[in-house]
Design a protein around this nucleic acid. Structure first.
Lengths: 232, 232
DNA sequence: TAGTGGTCTAGACCACCGC
DNA sequence: CGGTGGTCTAGACCACTAA
């Protein structure tokens, strides 16, 4: 009742603490915004912002008329950063080196057309690249770029900087779909990543769209022992 | 100038569109909130909310006095859901089955103490579990639970439901750190997951804290071919 | 239909920080 | 110092939806 706390962060944290302490157990109903505003001695908009953040976080569910309820089965979300290879390497205080292995223009094979959704005759730029950290293999990158989506790519010199950095400068703020999996090193990967054939490797695939049109599909295979980290 | 659009979502989307169309290229400065409010014919608070969402998304950077700037190197974030095993299996329309393989109480080994930060004499509950989808191996779970953090765990029957679901009911809204990697199946894993020794497997480790104290460390190894999916 | 959250407003004061 | 975003207020109207 008329506490001295007022900022939306105080309210957010206080409510969170009450939920964690089971003062408001999972599944229970919180007081209305008006009631909380009264208790905290602030405007309803301030309470609204606090509760909205908790809702975005997945801690509570809000519905008009029914009120704000503590989420019983919290859908936990983890956020991880999609770093450019160069950055991840440099953050390890390692020297980054890039090498373009292969560059060809082909018509999109059937599996790629199905995968990213381009037309039959679509021309794509197919690239193989290697990324090194302190001269040790870090990532093998195999990429296909939809030339129709970014025609300039044909004239870009990709021998010095990787395609990802150029693409980011061309189509920032794109959408993507990622999958991660474990695979066994085949002949090519074992050579480029310097591991025995059959070695377990962490592989990530990403399809990227810009304003609805597919731009690129990339398959990134990391050195043995690579770990992806994240928190929540 | 004095457009008819007014909602913060309209403003957010319009600004985003201008950024994508390079009307405001990466690195450039946006008009001030007051100017935008004037253009859109709305209150400054509305513009503030729109720009704040774009800032949370990582699209723009905001600084007092300097203004709002289009992020040149967008730190892309991907969000993936931390699902309970049962849910992931059931979402595949497969029948879920759980089995407790082993349950022992031990004093925390040195590597675990270092890993999660508990005292030398700490007692932990060590569990091995299997999760099946349509009677095919889905995930092998090896878990250590800090008994001091959740004393009740000693008396809980974990033969029917997995420890994760019980823990979630006890300490919802905890913090965690995750790592994902690819490993080769050893003897135990090859037996439980029914794969050849040396098969590449996707493994995720998670350490969980509740209000600052370590609760559990779990190592989850998935069936061969498992893919983790995410979008942004 | 009535109760709840969702949003907007016009104004205000403050905190930060580049100049 | 002054300009910019960060936040709060008191009030208003609207949109959804459970009863």
């Amino acid at each position: 009742m008329t506490q001295k706390k007022s900022s939306f962060q105080d309210i957010r944290d206080t409510v969170m603490a009450r939920i964690q302490s089971r003062h408001w157990p999972p599944g229970s109903l919180l007081p209305t915004e008006v009631e909380l505003a009264e208790e905290f001695g602030c405007a309803r908009a301030t309470v609204n912002r606090a509760l909205r953040e908790l809702a975005d976080q997945g801690v509570v569910d809000r519905k008009r008329k029914s009120g704000t309820r503590v989420n019983a089965a919290p859908v936990k979300q983890a956020v991880f950063e999609i770093a450019v290879v160069r950055q991840s390497v440099e953050e390890m205080n390692a020297a980054y080196r890039y090498s373009l292995v292969k560059r060809t223009v082909i018509t999109a094979p059937a599996w790629l057309r199905a995968r990213i959704g381009v037309k039959d005759e679509a021309q794509v730029l197919h690239l193989n690249c290697m990324h090194y950290a302190d001269n040790r293999p870090f990532q093998f990158e195999e990429r296909w770029i939809n030339i129709a989506a970014v025609p300039d790519v044909i004239d870009v010199d990709l021998s010095e900087t990787g395609p990802n950095e150029w693409l980011l400068s061309q189509v920032p703020f794109s959408n993507a779909e990622l999958t991660s999996t474990a695979i066994a090193a085949g002949e090519t990967l074992s050579e480029f990543l310097d591991v025995p054939q059959g070695a377990p490797l962490f592989q990530m695939e990403r399809t990227t769209w810009f304003q609805g049109t597919p731009v690129t599909f990339v398959r990134m295979t990391f050195h043995q022992g690579y770990q992806m980290r994240t928190r929540y």
